[in-house]
Design a protein around this nucleic acid. Structure first.
Lengths: 218, 218
DNA sequence: AAACTTGGTATTGTATACAAAAAAGTTGAC
DNA sequence: GTCAACTTTTTTGTATACAATACCAAGTTT
C-alpha cells in the first residue's frame, strides 16, 4: 500500500526531533526542507500539521514552526504519567494475561538477563522494550496499548540516557522479575505498584542526571 | 492573536464529528467543504492531517478521508481507559489538592445537587464537567491533566446519552460525595477507586444502552 | 450472463503562483 | 552613534493549475 508522502515526511521529522537532531526552539524552514525532501512546500506543511497535534512542534501564526522539546518540568510530568499508565497496564494484565504471553514475557526477560551479563546496553534496551510492549498488549485494552506505546516512544531518547548509569541495568532486571512474578500470581495491585516504581525510578534517575548536567554547566 | 485557519477548520470538523453530525464511514469531500468554508482545498487538507492524528478520521491513499466513529469495542476500551486515568488523577490529587481547590470542588458538587433537584440534566452535565476538570487539575501534573481533558472531550457525546437514564444523576451525585470525602481525607487509594468506579459505571451504562438499542433495531 | 476492456469523469496529490505579513536592511535626522 | 521611518527581501498562507490515480458506466468478448 502506498503510504502518504506527508506521513512519511512527518515520521522523518519526528525522528529528527526525538533523537534531538533539532534543538529546542529551532525553526523548521519550509523551503529548505522542501528542497531536502525533494518536494514542494505543500507536503511539508501537511507534515507540520501532524507534528503540531503530536505536540512536537509549535506553530506561531505568520512566524513559522518551531521544535518544542519538553522542559524539565514537562519531562518529569511525562515520566510520572508514563509510570501511572504502565501501572494501569500491569493491573489489567495481571487479570487478563494468557499463559502464552507469560511465557513470552519470561523469554524476553531472559534475553534481558543475557544482555546484562554481556554488558550490552543496546541489546538490553531492545529487549526491555519488547518486555514492556508485551505488557501493554496484555492489558487487553487496545486503546490503552496504543497510548502507552505512543508515550513510550516519546520518552525513548530520555529513557535511553539513564540506562548507562552504573548498575541501572541490573537493578532494572530485578524489577522486571518482580513484575513477572506479580503477573504470574495474578496480583493486580502488586503488578501495578511494581511497574509504577520501575518506571518512576527512570524518571528519578533522569532527574538526577539533569541536575548533574546543570551543575556541571555552571 | 490570529488563530490559524486550518486549526479553526479542524476544530469545526471535530465538532461535527463528535456531535455525530457525520456518520461513521462517511467521506469528507474536499471541494464541498472548501466551498462551505469559503476557502480553497489547501486549508481543508491541512485540517484533515490534524484530524487524522487525533484519530477522528482515516485517510486512505488516493481514496479520501473518512470519518471514523469508534465501534462498540473501542468505545468500551476508551471508557475503561478514562476510568483508569481519572483514578490516577484522584490518587495524585488526594496527595496534592489544596484547601482552596477542595472548596471549589464542594461548591461544584453543590451546584450538581441543585441541578438534580431541579431535574436539569444539562445543568448537571455542565457542573459535573467542572467537577471532573478540577480533579484533573489538582493531580498537579499538567501533562496528565491535558490527556484527561482530551479523552473526556472525546467521550463527551457518549457520556451524555446515559445521563438521561432514570436515577443516574442521583447515583452520580452520591459517587461525587464519596470522591470528595476521599480527597478531603487524603486517602489516595480510596479516591482512585471511587473515581474509577464512578467512570466505569458510565461505561457500563453506555454498554447497556448499546445492547438495548441493538436489540430494539432487530 | 459474467467478466473484462475502455473511455470518460471525478478526485486526490503536488507544484507553483500570488498576496499578505514579518524580518532585514537602508537611509537620514538628530 | 542611535534611533526611527521607509524600502527591500523573506517567508508564510492561500488559491489555483496540472498530473496521476481511482471510479463509473457502457460496450465488448467469452
Amino acid at each position: 500500500m502506498d503510504v502518504r508522502r506527508a506521513n512519511k515526511i512527518a515520521e522523518d521529522l519526528e525522528q529528527f526531533i526525538l533523537t534531538g537532531e533539532y534543538a529546542d526552539g529551532e525553526r523548521l524552514d519550509e523551503v529548505k526542507l522542501a528542497e531536502q525532501f525533494g518536494v514542494s512546500r505543500t507536503p511539508i506543511r501537511e507534515a507540520f500539521q501532524q507534528l503540531t497535534v503530536s505536540g512536537l512542534v509549535e506553530q506561531l501564526p505568520r512566524r513559522g514552526v518551531f521544535v518544542r522539546q519538553p522542559g524539565p518540568v514537562e519531562l518529569l510530568e511525562m515520566f510520572e504519567y508514563m509510570a501511572e499508565i504502565e501501572a494501569v497496564c500491569g493491573r489489567l494484565a495481571a487479570k487478563r494475561i494468557s499463559d502464552e504471553a507469560l511465557g513470552l514475557l519470561e523469554e524476553a526477560n531472559a534475553k534481558c538477563e543475557e544482555a546484562v551479563q554481556k554488558g550490552d546496553a543496546d541489546e538490553y534496551y531492545r529487549k526491555n522494550e519488547q518486555f514492556h510492549h508485551l505488557i501493554y498488549k496484555q492489558s487487553g485494552n487496545g486503546f490503552l496499548e496504543q497510548e502507552a506505546f505512543r508515550l513510550h516512544r516519546r520518552l525513548k531518547p530520555f529513557r535511553r540516557i539513564q540506562l548507562h548509569l552504573r548498575g541501572r541495568m541490573k537493578q532494572s532486571l530485578a524489577e522486571h522479575k518482580a513484575i513477572v512474578e506479580a503477573l504470574n500470581d495474578s496480583k493486580p495491585e502488586e503488578a501495578a505498584n511494581a511497574l509504577r516504581d520501575h518506571v518512576a525510578v527512570q524518571g528519578e534517575k533522569f532527574h538526577h542526571l539533569m541536575i548533574k548536567m546543570k551543575s556541571a554547566a555552571e
